[in-house]
Amino acid sequence: MKTKIIKLSLIIIWLLLISCFVEYGTPEFPAGIVEGYKPVYLTGAEAEIKWKSPQPLDKPGKIYVFQNYLLVNERLKGVHVYNNTNPGEPISIGFLQVAGCTDMAIQGDVLYVNHIADLVALKINNFQSFAELSRIQQKDWINQFPEETDVYFECVDPSKGTVVGWELVTLHNPTCYR
């Protein structure tokens, strides 16, 4: 009886450990259809910070509340700005195009955002226009690989442009893994 329990315990432990390591340690190729990361490339026209007309929400990321405004990050693309004076009816007032943007914060009348690999300060002028105040490069903000490890990803093709970030998608036979 006792040895049975020991054996059973060992088998359970073994299975648990195997389930961990097999899943995350050794990739299998061809991978087939799997969840993984795809590089998001920057094209020339999207590189500059630009205040545009309202855009539909697609992949909302972080949200940020400032006074009566609601800011919604469009992952790796920019920032939607809503007048949220009446939370029952937020009004879209524009879209700030910021390639690679995932984070934003406001102090006073200055918006700080990550733009590609830079930390940029922008004067917000009541969300009428934006003026760049400073730009500081952050060397490790852009990864040529997904931040996560033990994941499949689509290999980077430099001919497609600069990688500004990674999105989680369903991949068909990815050939990169880390």
Partner: peptide, 12 residues
Amino acid sequence: SGKAGSMARFAT
């Protein structure tokens, strides 16, 4: 001033 995030890159 607002709010920060759990995968935040910076804090103000």
